[in-house]
Design a protein around this nucleic acid. Structure first.
Lengths: 134, 134
DNA sequence: ATTACTGTATTAGTTACTTAATACAGCATA
DNA sequence: TATGCTGTATTAAGTAACTAATACAGTAAT
């Protein structure tokens, strides 16, 4: 599971974790009933305190995206398919819009912006290797 | 000067101020020597404590983007063209990285993401018509 | 029962962020 | 000099976020 934490963004870690797990569930990359990394495991990977992860998980459960089972682990909850597809497109468009606005405001040519995106995409995609989606 | 603060984003106010002023300077929207809003004026507009704005301004000066003159005000600094280009690239890369991670996590193919970016770019570029940069 | 995993709670302490009130410092101008 | 702007510093307080250490609680397998 790809999780990127930016320690310098000012955005609380637990929020970053929530956003990204939410995204992965929406993507179907975490399918219904699938087990997520344990609190301690994820905390170790991100080099972060376990209670920070626990907090993120607790809020994800409130949101209805995951189910916590003490003694067993954390599991992705079931989601309606239509909601999933719709939300996915929205999520990506939301951030791509910000990127596009930034590029235009900065006067960076479309071609160069596109090349940068492609390079970054491959960088993060290379660690993934499932490619089952879409 | 338009400055929008999102009090619910989790991003510190002084950081939001920095990001937006930085972007406006890089975009040439604030040209060299131009005076910015005073600490108290901006603080009032954003309904925020003056010292929060002062902190943002202080960090912008460290960054070399503005010059503070006590008793007079705050002014956009002169920038070497190369540094400007470099920083601009960094700013765009930052947000494109987030977009790339999102796309990968959502399982959206590189090609489709690229097309979306291009479409959005053109959408926002068409309303600009300055094209003096780069 | 023991071991080894799960997630949870508590307590305590640190740091970052923000606000508030007050005072100070520098510049310009009437 | 007096006024009215600038930005700055200090002190105090409160909250949010994070960490650390420790202990507890539930499940499963040996």
């Amino acid at each position: 599971m790809l999780l990127e934490i930016d320690h310098h963004s000012g955005v609380p870690i637990y929020r970053q974790v929530i956003e990204q797990i939410r995204r992965q569930i929406m993507a179907g990359r975490l399918s219904e009933g699938e087990q997520l990394m344990s609190v301690r495991e994820l905390a170790a990977q991100l080099r972060v305190n376990p209670m920070t992860i626990s907090k993120a998980y607790a809020l994800l459960e409130v949101e209805g995206l995951v189910e916590r089972r003490r003694g067993i682990g954390l599991f992705a909850a079931k989601l309606r398919k239509d909601k999933k597809a719709q939300t996915r497109a929205q999520l990506l468009e939301e951030i791509l819009r910000k990127a596009a606005v930034t590029a235009v405001q900065l006067g960076i040519p479309e071609k160069k912006a596109g090349e940068m995106l492609a390079r970054l995409y491959r960088k993060y995609d290379s660690g993934t290797r499932s490619h089952s989606n879409e």
